[in-house]
Every structure is written in structure tokens, then in C-alpha cells.
Amino acid sequence: MEQTDKRGYRGDFPVTDDDVDATFKKEIASLVGGEGLLRCLKCGACSGGCPVGSVIDYRPRKVLGNVLLGLKDEVLSSDQIWMCAACFTCEERCVQQVNFTDVVTVLRNIASREGNAAPGYIKMAEMVRKNGRVSARTGQVDRMREELGLPPLQDPDIETLQRIMTQAGLDAVIAANTKEEKSE
């Protein structure tokens, strides 16, 4: 089948000037956790230890290369930044302290604000916003806790949590991503 979607399949298409934003890497490097990016030598130690790379064709080095080249739109709108399992093995092994996992967090934060967050994580965030925890409390769990001799479950401080989420910007991220869903 002919591959017509450029996103995530860069190898099939040549890069042209139109695809490149030369300031992208500097933007990423200026944000918390992104400063290691410019130290990358593209040695590939990150790809070598990547657990995702051992089951599918996924290479952190390639993602870093795309960012350093300035393929902003492609990186921010594709799955490549949402495939990292956050095991931090690459970060542990990187001789240049690029901290790929932290760079991915910076990229994901920007993508999320633009409405390109992983839908699964948005669902979990909505769950936390509603319940204070990532799971909903059920009568069954309460009974099992009692039978096991555990103290009753505390009610999480949802009010404070929701105010933090609004104040800090997560509500805006959730809104940006749920709007997108409706318009599709």
C-alpha cells in the first residue's frame, strides 16, 4: 500500500525547506527538561536500550534527529512522541545527559496544548479531576478493604486538586483535547 501520510514515516519522504523550523530545537532546549537536547551526538545508545524499540520499529535517536533537524509539525502531531514507555533506560545510559524522556515530556506538553495529546491519558486526567484518584471508588473495594482489616478509604481532597488543575493549566489542556474530539 502506498504511504501517503508523512507523519511518522519520514524515511519515505525527502525533507524540504518547508518542513523545517530551525528555531524548534532552541525552543525545546529553553524549557524545563529540554536543555539536554543540544548535547545529543546521535550515538544511538538510547535506541539500543529502548524496550519499545525491541518490539516495534521505534528509535529514540530518530525522534531526537527529527527535533534537531526542526521537523516541528511532524514531531508534534505524530505518534512518535507518544510511544515512549518512560522506563528511563535511555536517560540512564546516555553519556551526553540528553535525557530523552525529559525531552519527550517537553514535546508532549506542547503537543497537548495544541490538542494532540494521547486520548488515553486525557481520559485518565478527567478521571483524576473527577475522583481525586485515577480509579473510581466502588462499594466492592470498600467491602474488600473491610474484610482485609484495612482502614476505611480516605476521601481525597478533590476541591484543592481541582483548583490546582485549573490554576496550573491542566484544565486548558483537557479542553483543547476534548474540543478536538467533538469537531472530528
Binding site: V32, G33, A86, V104, T105, V106, R108, N109, S112, R113, A117, A118, Y121, I122, M124, A125, V128, G132, R133, V134, P156, D157, I158, T160, L161, I164, M165, A168, G169, L170, V173, I174
Partner: peptide
């Protein structure tokens, strides 16, 4: 309340 682990950091680190 939720500790906002890595998946939440992915959405917004500050939050």
C-alpha cells in the same frame, strides 16, 4: 490526592 505521575507530566509538567 493523585501524585500526577509520568503520564500526567506528559500532559502538563507544571500541573
Amino acid at each position: 490526592t493523585c501524585c500526577a505521575p509520568f503520564w500526567m507530566q506528559s500532559l502538563d509538567l507544571t500541573t
